[in-house]
Design a protein around this nucleic acid. Structure first.
Lengths: 100, 100
DNA sequence: TAGACATTTAGCTAAATGGCGAAGTGCTGC
DNA sequence: GCAGCACTTCGCCATTTAGCTAAATGTCTA
């Protein structure tokens, strides 16, 4: 593995890692149905707002989500919808191995 | 988020987490071109064999890879090819956000 | 059966991660 | 202007992760 391709795998891994957490997976799934503000997501998830905020930052920093401030609230939405395809493939891994 | 769906997200996150590492991403990419034994992969990657073996175990444990022992060697291959689609989507995240 | 090779497992350490509460920032409405 | 809400950042701690070396397991061949 060359130094260059090593750096490329690292960059890609960083994006996948952003999805590799139950709470962040829930967030992406929920936002696939439309934008939500941080407080709405916090109500749905069982953790404190600072924690939710940090999960959202991670997803935004790698480019999966984008945010928009409207008044005192910040609304998040999915910027790259194809990440939702991950769910189907993950289900294939979980069950029979037959890809969709 | 109900306890049930929490458990489901956790199970899915575990699979995605298995992919969320540069070395494991390289392994999956390399095995997409055909099976390889542990020593071949170790030669390509710049880390010790025990480390490679543990990466392989993680990918196998979640069901992404399967292995076959032939003589003294163990060959690994991809069990669920659709995980390769992740690469294209990750590239979309990296660039313009346009899904493939 | 002994020695060499391929792989996995175990034990250790350093670094990263995820949670919390407290504190800081910024907008809104009184 | 200040009280209150929405959100982010900070500092802390517990847990997990990834690497290493050493040791264990399994296979082949002389």
């Amino acid at each position: 593995m060359t130094a260059t391709s090593q750096a490329e795998y690292k960059a890609k891994a960083r994006i996948i890692k952003a999805l590799a957490h139950p709470t962040r997976l829930f967030i992406v799934d929920e936002l696939s149905r439309g934008e939500r503000c941080v407080c709405e997501l916090t109500d749905m998830i069982g953790v404190e707002m600072p924690t939710v905020s940090r999960h959202l930052s991670q997803l935004k920093n790698v480019g999966i989500l984008e945010d928009e401030k409207r008044g005192a609230q910040v609304f998040y939405r999915v910027r790259v919808p194809c990440v939702l395809n991950f769910f189907k493939c993950v289900e294939a891994v979980q069950s029979n191995g037959k890809c969709p």
